[in-house]
Design a protein around this nucleic acid. Structure first.
Lengths: 207, 207
DNA sequence: GTCATCATGTAAGCCGTTACATGATTGC
DNA sequence: GCAATCATGTAACGGCTTACATGATGAC
């Protein structure tokens, strides 16, 4: 899964490990963070597999968007504009995706039988723009079905054991149930939007 | 964490592994399920540590036992003498919590420095009734602070990178943000309820 | 000249899952 | 007698985190 996320990010632009970690966190949320201890080995594996490769030394990280007028923004922009050779640390290793990497990405992304956990879904949906409309819909619907099933099970076991649960445990279960219900209706919205827009008008925001 | 949950469940009633698993699932939700491969070893560890011990062979689990308290001893003795040994499978091993186990439970439950992940919080809140009013409030407030902090971080990194995110990724992040906001207000409700209810005569610190 | 930040990597270990092995009992 | 369910356990393996080791650069 980590591999998939890395490949997906590298499809957009060449990046070095440190920056990759930042993007990963941005994508997956501050929960389920990725540590260097798993990121670097993953990159190595991908390199060995020929899915990514280190590119020429000075491929500077894409300049960040023009900032607003705020003081903090300008400062950040200034920092980001540091002279190219000045790098800012130990020599970076900037990776790019290879043709094999692209193929691997497509394969991993499309693999419907893959892990169905929270993270796997998050990563897949993050790169859903690379899926066909059908596959995208399938992804959303499989996820929905999974949540519906879980919800039903949760309700069953709640009914069976509610007498054993005290206020706190009950509140916990109820809150969990509500959260799942909201997740399902969020998916419903996405599914509806998907069906409403038959042909994909790509809406990507990269500079 | 698993250990804590096991001890907490055994505080209520003696149980065998298989049933324990069911209760665990009921408590933690169908997500983050516990497998036998981790449950049984955990039970063994607890047994070795003297926190739990196997009790008399055939304690058939009664569906729901009204906890009246009086006459309990005789009733239990009668149930234990039931002639149907091994009702429902391979010989069960019914575990009960020991005095050491109770101590361990208290220690683990109260350990504020412990793991702060989703599961740890869920388990702790499930057994919050065994905490003092103060400790309970502390638990809820630490959790709240954590979520607030994460939310702020998530918003920061979203602002920083929103131009890079497409519709799907954006929706994902937004949904995550909303979920966290709801989690926080759920906690707020619990905290409010906690402060409103003077369960202890010796409530201190408030107003 | 030293601290914070950027940057890459390795090694140990935890915690859990999957898969396997076994066996009793109930119901058809 | 056979399948399903109940029930307990072991072993291999996987993924991720923590802690450690290293080193460059810029700011103060």
């Amino acid at each position: 899964m980590l591999e998939l996320a890395i490949l997906g990010l590298l499809k957009d632009s060449e990046l070095h490990g440190y920056e990759l970690k930042r993007r990963l966190q941005e994508l997956l949320g501050p929960w389920s963070s990725v540590s260097f201890g798993s990121l670097y080995p993953a990159l190595s594996r991908l390199e060995v597999a020929g899915a990514v490769k280190a590119v020429e030394a000075e491929q500077r990280v894409a300049p960040v968007v023009p900032m607003t007028g705020s003081l903090g923004g300008e400062l950040a922009a200034f920092r980001a504009r540091r002279p190219t050779p000045g790098r800012g640390g130990r020599t970076r290793k900037v990776y790019g995706i290879t043709t094999r990497g692209e193929a691997l990405f497509d394969q991993m992304l499309g693999d419907a039988g893959g892990a169905d956990d929270e993270r796997a879904f998050t990563v897949r949906l993050s790169f859903a723009r690379y899926l066909s409309a059908d596959a995208r819909l399938g992804l959303l619907e499989r996820r929905r079905a999974l949540l519906v099933e879980r919800l039903a099970k949760a309700r069953d076991s709640f009914r069976a054991g509610r007498d054993r649960l005290d206020t706190y445990a009950r509140s916990l279960v109820e809150h969990g149930t509500e959260t799942t219900e909201r997740d399902i209706s969020w998916l419903d919205q996405l599914i509806a939007a998907e069906r409403a827009a038959p042909t994909d008008i790509s809406t990507k925001g990269t500079s």
